[in-house]
Amino acid sequence: MRSALKTREKTILALRFGALGLAPVLIGIGFFRQEHLEVLQKAVRICLECIGIG
């Protein structure tokens, strides 16, 4: 019981800090590939699909 809880806690910690470490890496790669500019390009124009025009 005790060891199962310990394993669960370790898994949670690994996932928590793994995701926290991975997220900035993905964001960094995205910046390097200028994906934020693609986001900007899409977001500064009215998205006709989004508002239901088509």
Partner: peptide, 14 residues
Amino acid sequence: PFYVLGTLMLFGVI
């Protein structure tokens, strides 16, 4: 989608 996925992951894990 590295950038968007990374951003979502950051919000999600926090």
